[in-house]
């Protein structure tokens, strides 16, 4: 390596270093601001809310993961999907049966040409995709058949199709990260049972 090249490299490095210092100064200030805000205004419920990766894409906090998808719609797809969602009025019985879904929503973007689909669910979604294909194929295809290029829930390429349109959230916060939908349902039954026993003890 020539002397000249070496010199250039040193100059490059120093520019780089300057950038890094400036960057870390900015990051340091943001970190300090957040720390102050947390101290002044934050609370602590004793649960670990920190996030980690939910697989190839998506974030997970405790037992709860997020799936965020933006996908183009077929011509007239938005109108059909809106009609389906209007008829359902929130009563998506197949979603109830899945048993791991905390919530899901559809939002139409860019003059109804694209759809944003977000859901919070327990654990991993991909192990169960084959189960969706044999247990609720009609519901899946009614909802997502309006998406451009949707291969069909039974098509082996469907996992990859979802991954291709999935965007990992930049931030993810879950109020009760340690509880699954099943945990919440079970705990409710236990509390009801205990209250019933306490009420009976009181009347006797």
């Amino acid at each position: 390596m020539s002397k000249n090249n070496n010199k250039e490299r040193i100059i490059d490095n120093s520019e780089d270093l300057k950038d890094k210092i400036t960057e870390s100064m900015d990051a340091f200030k943001l970190r300090a601001d957040l720390l102050v805000a947390n101290l002044k205004e934050g609370g602590n419920d004793g649960y670990d809310h920190s996030t980690s990766s939910a697989g190839e894409k998506g974030l997970k906090s405790g037992k709860v993961s997020e799936l965020t998808v933006i996908a183009p719609l077929k011509d007239g797809g938005a109108a059909r999907l809106k009609e389906i969602l209007k008829i359902a009025g929130g009563n998506l019985k197949g979603a109830t049966r899945v048993g791991t879904l905390h919530d899901l929503r559809f939002v139409f973007l860019d003059n109804d040409t694209r759809v944003l689909f977000c859901t919070a669910y327990d654990g991993d979604w991909d192990p169960y995709i084959d189960d969706f294909a044999t247990k609720i194929p009609e519901l899946m295809d009614i909802l997502f058949g309006n998406v451009e290029g949707w291969p069909g829930i039974k098509d082996p390429s469907v996992k990859q199709f979802i991954l291709d349109h999935q965007i990992t959230a930049a931030g993810w916060y879950v109020g009760v990260p340690h509880l699954t939908v099943q945990d919440i349902r079970r705990h409710e039954r236990i509390v009801k049972g205990i209250n019933k026993a306490l009420d009976e003890a009181q009347t006797n």
């Binding site: 048993g99 791991t100 169960y128 189960d131 099943q182």
Partner: peptide
């Protein structure tokens, strides 16, 4: 009873 939708057969 399946708490979480799953197809035992697969």
């Amino acid at each position: 009873e399946d708490f979480i939708l799953s197809d035992v057969r697969i």
